[in-house]
Amino acid sequence: MHPALSIIVFTTASGLGYGLAAVLGLGLLDPLSWSTKIAHVLALLLIGGGLISSTLHLGNPQRAWRALSQWRTSWLSREGVMALVTFVPLTLNAFSVIFLDRHLIWAGLAGTVLAAVTVYCTAMIYASLKAIDAWHTPLTPASYLLFSGAGGALAASLFAASGTGPWAGLAIAGMLLLVAAWAVKLAWRNRLQRRPRSTPETATGLGAIGKVRLFEPPHINDNYLTSEMGFRIARKHASKLFRIAFAAGLVAPLILAFIALFLPAGGAMVLLALAVLAFGAGVMVERWLFFAEARHAVMNYY
């Protein structure tokens, strides 16, 4: 699948934003501290920015409101609805924390739950597509949720360290979630080796005669289908990129957060900031590969 920058930015930014919002909703950070207020604003910015970026690839964005109507069958519609619903408790709580120095317990918890549901809906857009073997597994929503949670806990530990709060606990939670996320991701990636559901033989129905090979494509040049679905990445590049994602998204934040545990809040802050940045970069590469390595069934015809 073609890795469109707008969608990669959207899933990375909103994933991190919802993760942070979910952890903030638990009310572990001191609402009096400036860093907590900034954290609330940042979470909303990441979510909002991600959503805006996701509308950039639409052919007719002026009709985007229509996408809220088909939540009975469409995960994309559900995601849109949930994203809007989630904004209500998130902005309420953010407003209260920023201007009234008070954390709202119920709005906070509602925000936490709804943020998780929204991330789940995003992941299900991909996981529900049977035509793309790599995505069509419960491991897809599991990894999206875990990555979001890991990023949220790490980011929250940074803001807790810059103010007052149980930052060490949050950092440890982030590290655990990080390991879980990558364990799921490795299992997800192993699935790519499996025999694909469809082959050129089943796609053409000519398997009974023999082995099918494309002799002449319908057109000499690329078309919408081949440029959208036919992205090919060399195996050696994919494995190199995966190692980069693994190093930046797991190894680096893990080591940095671990060292931070033994430092005073000031030093821990710097290391945790670096950990969050490395994590963000690693997840961007991971998301790029999520698309680039996924093979669409239509390519059996090309």
Partner: peptide, 22 residues
């Protein structure tokens, strides 16, 4: 008139039977 051009249906079709008019 209702289509926003999100392209998701083209992803969902295994046969490549839908094409976005660019």
């Amino acid at each position: 008139d209702m289509c926003i051009g999100c392209g998701l249906c083209a992803w969902a079709c295994p046969y490549g039977a839908r094409e976005m008019d660019l």
